[in-house]
Structure formats: structure tokens, C-alpha cells
Simulated scan of single mutants.
Amino acid sequence: MKFNRVLVFAFMAASFSLTSCQNEEEVTSSSEISEQTINAIKTMGFSTQNVQRAEGGYLVEGDIILKESDLRDAGKVQALRVGEAEQYRTTNLVTGLPRVITVSVDPKLPASYVAAVDEALARYNAEGIQLTFQRVTSGASINLVAAPKNAQYLASAGFPTSAGQPHNEVKIATRHIGTNPNRSWLATILAHEIGHCIGFRHTDYMDRSYSCGGGYTNEGASTVGAIQVPGTPASADPNSWMLACIGSGQNRPFNTNDKTALGYLY
């Protein structure tokens, strides 16, 4: 089965039959979500297709969690121009640089996941940015936990808070990923979700069909919370770690444009 998210790398980020960046406990149809909520999601610049209720808020674009507090602040975000396939960041970023971001792995996750987590963190640390990632056993800035058993995604995460803190949780659907997955594939998924936690959106934000397949998906001409990172290309980028979807077993280390985006923001 092909998964469309790298995060969607696993839906988020990316996802195919499942999204690689989702974290949903109770899945409901978008028709059960109020028009006010749908409008707030649209105002923030996110796709309103297949919105699902999730633990703590709403799951959008396959692997991104929006909390009720995010939706209440929807009208406070500046309007942004529409781009094509550049790297994008959210309005909020992690502050207090230079800074160590600690990451923990829930003991309920398969022991084999630890090596993939270490690989994902090593990818970031190799870039020499002002965020250093360190795995710890407790009290972490970002906690990697098991997703609900009925999760219809590979993994999911949210975005930094208005106070400049990284999103504190990545949920991983072990029933879809398996207990002993390809290490580099899982490292890519986790690096993608951590990318969301520190403020990155999907590289194919303007057309998720680029990595996920299916029909053309454009989020509309008036967007917020998706700011192009200067220095990244306006043309398609087929290998970015922040593409919305990822194929099973695929490895996407940071490419040149990804490195540019990481270096510019951090």
C-alpha cells in the first residue's frame, strides 16, 4: 500500500491511502463539523477537504492538528500571497535561540523506533542550525507517542505556539508503520513531523496532488499561516522532506532547498 504523507510525508504530512501526518482519535466526516469551524480553517490557509475531528482539535491536510485556540486566532494572522511549490513556514516559529529541543520516545512504541528517531534528530543536528535536538527519557519538548488504534494516518503533529514553543507531540500509527519498519523511511516521517512542530508546512502546499496523487488541490487565493521561505524555488521540488505524502519505504533526507529553508529560519 502506498502512503501519501511524509508527514504527510505521512498524510503530513503527506499521505496517500493514509496520511503521514495525522493524529486523529475519532474520525468524523467534514459534514459533522460546523460551518464556522470550516471557515476558520480556510481563513488560516488550510485545505478544508476531509477535515476530521481529532483529539485536541481538528485534523487537516492529513497530518496537521489545529487546536480550538488556533481557530480562535484565525482572524489575527496576516494575509499572504499565494505561491507554487516553495518551502513554507507558519506564522509562529520556535523562539529563544539558540536552543536545545528535547525529544522523548514513549516506551509503548516499538523499541526498533528509537534508531529511526536518532537518525531523524541527527539529520537536523548535522545542519548546524540554532536548534539542537537531543533524545531524553522524560520531560521532553516534543513527545513521540502511539496514535489511537483507529488512526487513519501514519503520523501527525501540530505547529509552534504563539509563545514560541514547539508543538509538544507527534503521534505515530504503529499499525500502519509496523513494528520493524525501514529505518530511513521512518526517520523521514519523523523528521517531517518534527518539521511541523518547529513551524514548517508542506512544500506542495499549493497543490498536494503533486506528492499525494489524485486531483489538483489548491487551497485558495487568500491564505494565512503559509509564508514562503526566501531563497527557496518557485518551481516544483520533488524531493523535499516536507512534501505532503510519501511512498512506503521512501527516504527523503534534506535536499539543497530544505537546507536553505532550515538555515534561513534557524
Rank of each mutant, 00 (worst) to 15 (best):
I172Q: 02
H202L: 08
S156P: 08
A120I: 00
A187N: 04
A163S: 11
H192A: 15
T137S: 15
E193R: 10
A173F: 08
E193L: 12
V105R: 15
R175Q: 15
Q152S: 14
Q165T: 14
P181A: 07
N150T: 12
S184D: 13
E119D: 05
A116L: 07
T161I: 05
Y113L: 06
A155L: 09
K171L: 07
T137D: 15
V145A: 01
G158L: 01
I194N: 02
K171T: 09
N182Y: 06
I172C: 01
R183C: 05
A157E: 06
V136F: 11
H196F: 00
A122T: 12
A163R: 07
K171N: 03
P110C: 11
S138N: 13
I142W: 04
C197I: 06
V100E: 14
A146C: 01
N182E: 13
A126L: 02
V114P: 00
F159P: 01
N125M: 02
H196C: 04
P148F: 07
V114S: 13
V136K: 09
T102D: 06
T179C: 03
L109Y: 12
N180E: 09
A155N: 06
P181S: 04
V117H: 02
V105Q: 15
A115D: 13
Y113Q: 04
S156F: 11
R135W: 10
T132D: 03
A140W: 02
L186G: 03
F133M: 04
V103M: 10
P110L: 13
I177K: 11
